[in-house]
Design a protein around this nucleic acid. Structure first.
Lengths: 256, 256
DNA sequence: TCAAAAGTGTTGATCCTACACCCATGA
DNA sequence: TCATGGGTGTAGGATCAACACTTTTGA
């Protein structure tokens, strides 16, 4: 805040801003990264696809608003939504990003495990999981990338980049998994987000070498495929940072 | 944006928000990290120290507003300020963070080379560089950490953490250096931000191994100390990412 | 001649990649 | 018995921290 702010001022003396949250919600279904999108009912961009989101209310922080919207759009209970990974991405504030008025949006990223099809709340009965190709969202069968309303293409792309970078040095990847999972499933998360195959023995060693990343659960089970040796079951541990990091294979240039 | 937004709406139908930017501006002077702080003239927190900042204007993005404020507070020309490193940190939006009204602040972090004492603009003739101890800002001679107004302690601490993390895998550190610098000076940046001494031969090798991090300049010079062999002079190169990263020595636990 | 800072060389430990290999299950 | 996925072992190369050493300057 500037010291030049007058002692007594009325909010309406200043340019009125609307403050919203937009959500880039990701999940992994059948080996493909998906984002939760809605179809806009009204102008502008009526009929176009967009990120879910909404206004920050009078007594809410942006984070609280994002959590509320996430529960509404996914149909997850407000209690359960507290356990999901939800973090601020960045704030988008270009003056003309919304043609109607000045809207500043605090974009958030959320990671959820594979869910039943979203049972939309009042706000968006039409929220859908849309698969993400290498270039962006693509409806099943469509040949081209789906353009989003407003600056949501940019938000989605930034959110996706951030996730890819963040699972390298944080324990975030378990947020895509159900409460109990196998190392094969965890590896699939990495492979799906990065779009690269990983060496299974080495992946396994790296994960287990980081204390607190995953912890073993009692009875074994079979999960990843219909066949093969049953895999040991793990749950997410208390750690949040990955030390040493799990670096993705660099595509070109030096092997490292 | 939510699809539930009504077709025609007036901004004042909603809770009016003020949107501000706050700046965590860092520099290094004589081997110590400093932050730019101002003294508040008015209530609340009159007389307390705070981060510089101000309102986002009607036709500005948050980034533009941050750049404008940075120029005003440091006395750097609007042209020159474009070359500085300025990036969004995150948005602070707790409902009661400002006791007067609802203020959402998009915090930014800026890195500047060592400057002459800030010639305050109209807004803050009293902006000062305050050295940062391990626990936070501390006025010269003071025994305790200086508490800041609003949630600015938290903003400053987060900004500082982020810088420490970011110079590991980005070329950001050169932003603290003048246009031409020696590797000794660059190493001092790392040592100051991290608060750890580094091995000179190894530091040198790592920096030079990353193509585009620094590039040599013609004639040699003496800089770092009054004595010793003159050091080769470099300038910042075109790279932005550091591959491989320059990891800080981990204080405890596993050697890596 | 000494202290201080820049710059080069080396070595042993560590880490990691890329495999080969065995195990347990369903079909 | 074969295909499939889980899990263990290991060898060779790359990397890196730590430290010895040389060089060039000011005092």
């Amino acid at each position: 805040m500037s010291s030049a702010r007058p002692l007594n001022y009325d909010p309406h003396d200043y340019e009125p801003f609307a403050v919203t949250v937009d959500l880039a919600v990701f999940t992994i279904r059948s080996g493909t990264l998906h984002a939760l999108l809605i179809r806009r009912a009204e102008e502008p961009y009526a009929g176009d696809w967009a990120l879910p989101g909404g206004f920050v209310r009078a007594r809410e922080s942006a984070h609280t608003a994002a959590r509320r919207e996430l529960a509404e759009e996914t149909g997850i209970s407000p209690d359960a939504v507290r356990t999901l990974h939800l973090e601020q991405l960045r704030t988008f504030s270009e003056p003309d990003r919304d043609p109607r008025m000045r809207v500043v949006s605090v974009a958030h990223t959320a990671l959820v495990p594979d869910l039943p099809e979203p049972r939309g709340g009042s706000d968006a009965a039409h929220a859908q999981w849309v698969p993400l190709g290498p270039e962006g969202p693509r409806l099943p069968g469509a040949s081209a990338v789906l353009p989003l309303a407003f600056d949501h293409d940019q938000i989605l792309a930034e959110a996706r980049d951030r996730i890819g970078a963040k699972i390298e040095y944080s324990c975030l990847a378990t947020a895509f998994c159900p409460p109990e999972f196998t190392l094969g499933e965890l590896q699939q998360v990495y492979e799906t987000v990065w779009g690269t195959p990983l060496d299974r023995p080495n992946f396994r060693r790296k994960v287990l070498a980081t204390s607190g990343f995953v912890e073993p659960v009692a009875g074994p089970a079979r999960l990843t495929g219909g066949r093969g040796k049953p895999a040991a079951v793990y749950r997410a541990g208390p750690a949040t940072a990955l030390q040493p990091p799990l670096l993705r294979p660099r595509p070109e240039g030096q092997p490292r």
